[in-house]
Amino acid sequence: MSARLDVKKTYKLYIDGEFPRSESGRSYVVADAKGGFLANASQASRKDARDAVRAARSAFGGWSGRTAYNRGQVVYRIAEVLESRRDQFEAELRSSEGVTPAKARTFVDAAIDRLVWYAGWADKIAQVVGGANPVAGPYFNHSAPEPSGVIAIIAPAGPLLGLVSVVAPVIACGNTCVVIASEPHPLTAITLAEVMATSDLPGGVVNVLTGSVAEIAPWLASHSDVNGIDLTGVNDPDLGRTLEEAAAENLKRVRRPGLEDLLATPALDRMTKFLETKTVWHPMGL
């Protein structure tokens, strides 16, 4: 009796709620922890990045216009679906990163819990960082945060927890994003995209590109329709500086490279970095 032949998964990009191959037709080899062949991943091009930005921009109005409560529910739904597929993620983490089963479980637990944490923030952040301003005059005056718009994210290594830690705060607050997944470990990112695609998250809110950071990131950093860029996953200081310089062209909000302890409870800065404060005045009179 011959062994059953495995059905191997094709890892593609995630743009506008769809899973296209790179328009360039390119792919690259993703190795497992021992250096063996694990899978082919799509190698995104600048045109894929452009399409992803376009998708993120068209999703922004609808997503930012939803109630914060609803956004929180959608992010929580991602956590639910992730929980239901946790075995698959643990397996992927073990094979791609070579971590122990216990460690894989810790990372998956933390990723799920992080999503729940940010889901809860969606309808609270405005109360914590906004408020009434007691101006010296007959005016109602208040400040509230609003999402900056389309955010480009260079995701850190740590394909699941790292990705969740940078994406969840951005979308919980109403931004949409284009993420370049960890270059050596892109597969979990695409599997997470599959989770998002089945979690009530509207197409275009999160777009995932896999491929060369050095190749794609400059196009996002210089893109005039991108409002902010998160350089967390950039390891090369020269690249970091170049990207920040390019981002200055349209005054993008920039989170500089560097990663906090992902297992610790986060601060608010991953949300506030990509929030604008809007202050509204109105006279009070008869």
Binding site: G137, P138, Y139, P283, M284, G285, L286
Partner: peptide, 10 residues
């Protein structure tokens, strides 16, 4: 008739 905003008028 156009309204009058008290604060602005004063």
């Amino acid at each position: 008739l156009p309204g009058v905003d008290q604060v602005g008028a004063e």
